[in-house]
């Protein structure tokens, strides 16, 4: 994906709000929240900042290996991944992202499913 989405939606100034909103929603979710229960706050925020930035084509890139390694110790089921996609989509929609762009982000995320899900 090109740089466009990250800049189209206002660069870091705006994307930072999406990141914190997503952080709150994920922690509040009873399926996904427990994954973050015992992780240091700054690490979660760090990962989610990079995650969103790279998903939107901003200045970050995790290699597939890094992503797989980071999640290897977790037992992530297909339903967990589905929930993540839904929560992210809702968050992006609430921040004014257009449907076509959300679809593109979902596709990006879907392409990485096999790296996380057992």
């Amino acid at each position: 994906m090109d740089q466009v989405l990250f800049h189209k939606y206002g660069g870091f100034a705006k994307v930072s709000r999406i990141v914190l909103d997503l952080y709150n929603r994920l922690l509040d979710d009873d399926d996904l929240g427990p994954f973050f229960e015992n992780v240091d706050m700054s690490r979660i925020v760090d990962h989610q900042t990079k995650f969103i930035a790279s998903l939107l084509g901003g200045p970050a890139s995790y290699t597939d290996d890094q992503i797989a390694k980071m999640h290897r110790h977790l037992t992530i089921m297909p339903a967990h991944f589905d929930t993540l996609i839904e929560i992210l989509s809702e968050t992006l929609a609430d921040h004014g992202m257009e449907a076509a762009d959300i679809a593109a982000v979902r596709q990006e995320l879907e392409a990485r499913r096999k790296l996380l899900v057992e």
């Binding site: 930072s16 952080y23 706050m41 700054s42 925020v45 760090d46 900042t49 990079k50």
Partner: peptide
């Protein structure tokens, strides 16, 4: 809390930008 979260995010982002 919010300030701490924002600080973490700025740290994370500035490190990415510096690397870039």
């Amino acid at each position: 809390t919010r300030i701490k979260e924002l600080e973490s995010m700025i740290d994370s982002y500035s490190m990415m930008v510096e690397r870039n």
